[in-house]
Amino acid sequence: MATPGPVTPEAPFKPSQPPVIEGFNPSVHIHQEGFKEKFLRKTRENPMVPIGCLGTAAALTYGLYCFHQGHSQRSQFMMRTRIAAQGFTVAAILLGLAASAMKSRS
Score class of each variant (00 low, 15 high):
residue 41 R to S: 04
residue 65 Y to H: 08
residue 55 G to D: 09
residue 73 Q to N: 12
residue 96 G to Q: 05
residue 78 M to H: 07
residue 71 H to I: 01
residue 19 P to Y: 07
residue 32 Q to T: 02
residue 24 F to N: 01
residue 18 P to H: 13
residue 23 G to A: 09
residue 79 M to T: 11
residue 31 H to A: 06
residue 100 S to H: 12
residue 91 A to F: 03
residue 34 G to H: 00
residue 20 V to Q: 10
residue 7 V to C: 02
residue 67 F to E: 12
residue 80 R to F: 13
residue 71 H to E: 09
residue 79 M to W: 09
residue 100 S to R: 15
residue 22 E to W: 02
residue 21 I to P: 03
residue 76 Q to I: 03
residue 88 F to C: 08
residue 70 G to P: 07
residue 77 F to S: 11
residue 2 A to V: 12
residue 8 T to A: 09
residue 78 M to I: 05
residue 9 P to R: 03
residue 98 A to P: 02
residue 77 F to K: 13
residue 102 M to D: 10
residue 22 E to G: 00
residue 85 A to T: 11
residue 105 R to Y: 11
residue 36 K to G: 00
residue 55 G to P: 05
residue 46 N to D: 15
residue 54 L to P: 02
residue 25 N to R: 13
residue 10 E to H: 04
residue 59 A to L: 07
residue 4 P to V: 08
residue 60 L to Q: 06
residue 54 L to F: 05
residue 47 P to D: 13
residue 72 S to G: 05
residue 37 E to R: 01
residue 27 S to N: 11
residue 8 T to V: 14
residue 34 G to K: 00
residue 8 T to P: 04
residue 1 M to W: 08
residue 85 A to W: 03
residue 2 A to H: 12
residue 29 H to E: 14
residue 106 S to R: 15
residue 36 K to R: 04
residue 14 K to T: 08
residue 60 L to N: 04
residue 17 Q to T: 07
residue 60 L to G: 02
residue 10 E to M: 04
residue 7 V to M: 10
residue 15 P to A: 11
residue 104 S to Q: 15
residue 75 S to Q: 13
residue 31 H to F: 07
residue 28 V to I: 04
